[in-house]
Design a protein around this nucleic acid. Sequence first.
DNA 1: TCATAATATAACTATATAATTATATGGTCA
DNA 2: TGACCATATAATTATATAGTTATATTATGA
Lengths: 103, 103
Amino acid sequence: MSEQQLDVVAQRFRVLSDPMRLKILHNLRDGELTVGSLVNATGASQPNISKHLSILRGAGLVNRRQDGNMAYFSIGAPFVFQLCDIVCEGIRKEFEQKQSTFR
Amino acid sequence: MSEQQLDVVAQRFRVLSDPMRLKILHNLRDGELTVGSLVNATGASQPNISKHLSILRGAGLVNRRQDGNMAYFSIGAPFVFQLCDIVCEGIRKEFEQKQSTFR
DNA sequence: TCATAATATAACTATATAATTATATGGTCA
DNA sequence: TGACCATATAATTATATAGTTATATTATGA
């Protein structure tokens, strides 16, 4: 793997390394939502959500569809959930190991 | 998924979001290495490598074994390579889509 | 066309963190 | 014990970025 490839991969992980962005992706799991809906669902400010959405879009993780004066966002790369599942599984195993140290 | 869970998952992605850490993991793919070997392999400074290794260790991604006055590090969670593969595949598909826009 | 609603962008601030330099710790062997 | 080697930690600096406030853009409907 080349230096450049590692940079690109690291950049993708960075996009996923923010709780609010994960929260947005999580909320989109059941289907597309408008920016306003995401603002309500997350409790974050509208500019904040817009910015996160543009970052997610830059990484191809969400798609944007405009209808009237509303923008609908949806999951663009379902593999993100696969990634989260693997990470969660890893965290679980790690806890188990740490626990077993005390048994 | 709870707020707290999202925080933990985001934190894990953050650990993987640095090119030098990915480089270290990549170098460990063929087996354990000492800090010195990793310094040589990566071209980074010794304190820098030590710090990255401690971050990786904190996330359970590498294991440490001491022998004499040398520390041997090895992959602690093989699933990281699975994660990278999925991300790489995602990047490839994204390029394909962007390319097809011009055909 | 004007007022309004939804979203996006810009400028700014505060915080997190990667890398460097200097120093400390811990082990080995004479 | 004392010199040396490998690794770890501390302090510092520079940069990246999340969030806020204010403003711009774009679309709708009276």
